[in-house]
């Protein structure tokens, strides 16, 4: 212990927290539960990714119907203006730390529907996005890759940094 102390300049607290971070991150990255948010075509691929063949659950990702139980949100499909407000509401209802995977071209940038008058050109106009999965629709393998990238991100961050100051007032009003 003393040797380690001398190596890190006597900062034992720092040593311990960084290990705890890794431990917590290990737990967090392997139990990322996602909010079922199938909006359009990608929603069917999302179901099939959670289905028996692609089996997203082996990575610890379990679908939840309630945003309050979810760690991250897979925005699967076209976001229209009418739905954008609801998507924001759902994002606000999730507890910190929270992440967003944008699945498919429509959620990334509006995709096929650039000429549409009622489609929001990308979900990142409404909520912050962590991982973009391209494809129209992405194959289950692509979505699995997206989840693995998200796990990488979770592994390499300090979970305390993800805590944000509580929002004043409610966004739901």
């Amino acid at each position: 212990m003393a040797k380690i102390d001398s190596e890190v300049g006597g900062d034992v607290t720092f040593f311990h927290t960084s290990q705890l971070d890794q431990l917590i991150n290990l737990a967090r990255e392997n139990s990322l539960w996602y909010l079922l948010f199938g909006l359009a075509c990608c929603g069917i691929e999302l179901i099939q990714t959670g289905g028996p063949r692609a089996d997203l659950m082996r990575f610890g990702a379990i679908p939840r119907a309630s945003p309050r139980q979810a760690d991250f949100m897979i925005v699967a499909g076209t976001l229209t203006y009418k739905m954008a407000e609801r998507a924001k509401l759902l994002y606000d209802q999730m507890s910190e730390p929270k992440y967003v995977i944008s699945m498919g071209s429509c959620a990334n940038c509006g995709g096929l529907f650039q000429l549409a008058y009622s489609v929001c050109k990308g979900v990142d106009k409404v909520v912050p996005v962590d991982v973009y999965v391209p494809g129209c629709p992405p194959r289950p393998e692509a979505l699995t890759e997206g989840l693995i990238r998200l796990q990488d991100k979770v592994r390499n961050e300090r979970w305390q940094d993800k805590r944000r100051a509580p929002v004043q007032g409610t966004g739901a009003a």
Binding site: A84, S118, K121, V126
Partner: peptide, 20 residues
């Protein structure tokens, strides 16, 4: 009324812009 031929887009809705 969007399906009329002379419909002009409003440019986003409720503060969400439609420019990418």
């Amino acid at each position: 009324f969007p399906l009329r031929k002379d419909y002009a887009e409003q440019g986003g809705w409720h503060g969400i812009d439609n420019v990418r």
